[in-house]
Amino acid sequence: MVSAVHGVMLTTDVPIKQYVLHLDAIAPAEGKFVIADLDERRVLIQPERAEQVKREIERYQQTTQYVAPNAMSKQ
């Protein structure tokens, strides 16, 4: 029997996809959002969680960046 599942397909690079899986893994049971792991660059997630996941990825990317501080300002 063929089934149809609605969702949002995230297409991204390998590391980010792994990070998405990681987010799903550390989420509590009721907060899981990954529906299907499609291939190494794609993952199907619940549509209503898509924005939140994208924000999460954005935040993560920001933490991996080095920004040279402004000498004047106290960081």
Partner: peptide, 15 residues
């Protein structure tokens, strides 16, 4: 970098 994640509303057909 801003376009690293692409998202598409879709329907998965499987099984």
């Amino acid at each position: 970098d801003m376009m690293r994640v692409r998202s598409d509303e879709c329907v998965l057909y499987c099984d």
